[in-house]
Design a protein around this nucleic acid. Sequence first.
DNA 1: GTTTTACCTAC
RNA 2: GUUGUAGGUAAAAC
Length: 414
Amino acid sequence: MTIVCSSDNLKRAYKQVKRNKGVAGIDQMPTGKFSDWFIVEGELLINDLLLGNYEPQGVKQVEIPKPKGGMRKLGIPTVRDRIIQQSIAQVLNPIYEREFSERSYGYRPRRNAHKALRQAVEYVTEGREVVVDMDMKSFFDEVNHDRLMYELSTKIGDKTLLRLIRKYLQSGILLGGLVSQRTKGTPQGSPLSPLLSNIVLDELDKELENRGHCFVRFADDFSIYVRSKKAGERVKNSISAFITNKLKLKVNEEKSAVCEVDKTILLGHTISKSGDLLIAKENIKRFKNSIRLLTKRKRGVSFEQIISELNPKLRGWFEYFKHTKSKGLFQNLDAWIRRKLRCFRIKQTKRAITLVRFLKKHGVKEYQSWIIALSGKGWWRKSAAPQIHQAMGNLWFREQNLFSLSLNYKKLKY
DNA sequence: GTTTTACCTAC
RNA sequence: GUUGUAGGUAAAAC
């Protein structure tokens, strides 16, 4: 079988699974222990795979909270199955990558949300200011195994490999088959499922292309850009019909809508009619909450520690949203973060005398220090006082190496 | 060149 | 007995 013929493929798969640092599956074998196990049992495993006798192990069910509320059910395969699936994915990927649509951006090498957004912005600047947002209803639950297997058999000649994939489908490890059907929601978490979802939805891409639509797709979320509301409704209805009748998938009618481009969210962004990217409100709220969590006073955590925890977060968030038009927002957020940190720092002093000593050390007059220290204001009110600003100015934060959203934003523009 | 860490998005 | 997969970005270390 192609996936295990070269030991290099298996090794690469193992490295990838190990790098992801996932937890152990139901057999309790952690990623790090697999190589030891493989030395002893590997030959048997490969033999089973070659003969088509291999049976997948069960999945571990875990629920994690979704960022937008609700829970997401995950089905975590054992490390062994993750490695096998990963090696299958490594073989299938190059085969399918060649023929996938240019407008499909999720789960693919050299493609990402930014490229999808850039394409969407281009559509908008061409005057397509109405967007048809389509949402699939529990996509993985609805995938028809026979359709998928047929599609795979047109590209994959290896019968043993096809049988193995079918086993994964049937055992509910891959797309949530019988095992998960009685529960609500779909377990995800298999290395192969993103690729398979692209294979299933490639048919949709091809149809949209044939009809000449301007669209972007990221996983099961896709948006079609049109010039008028009327055209939008028409497109929505006919694509909806195509999805239910031809693809045998379900459309979530409640979450699918035709609306003005600046009233919908795509990949965490909103696009204005002038073609500017803006950060979606929900994402700003979520971001501020996570900063709040970090700057909540924790026992025995130093100021430097907080900054070093804050920086990667700020940088990561900035990296994702740096292409947006956010000069003012970034400035406001910077100011808000600095105030949070001032508040955190003066809270650390606890007593008035310690606060006075701290302020004096940072160049505030003794008399002024006492005024603020003895004022009845709470910490958050105090943190905005001029004395506090004098002791911990914007420049001071730069010396502490606090990442600045607005400074980095300026840096990329000029 | 290799490794690690952190962050973001989608499911 | 508590966090999966894929893609991406940055930083650090050797």
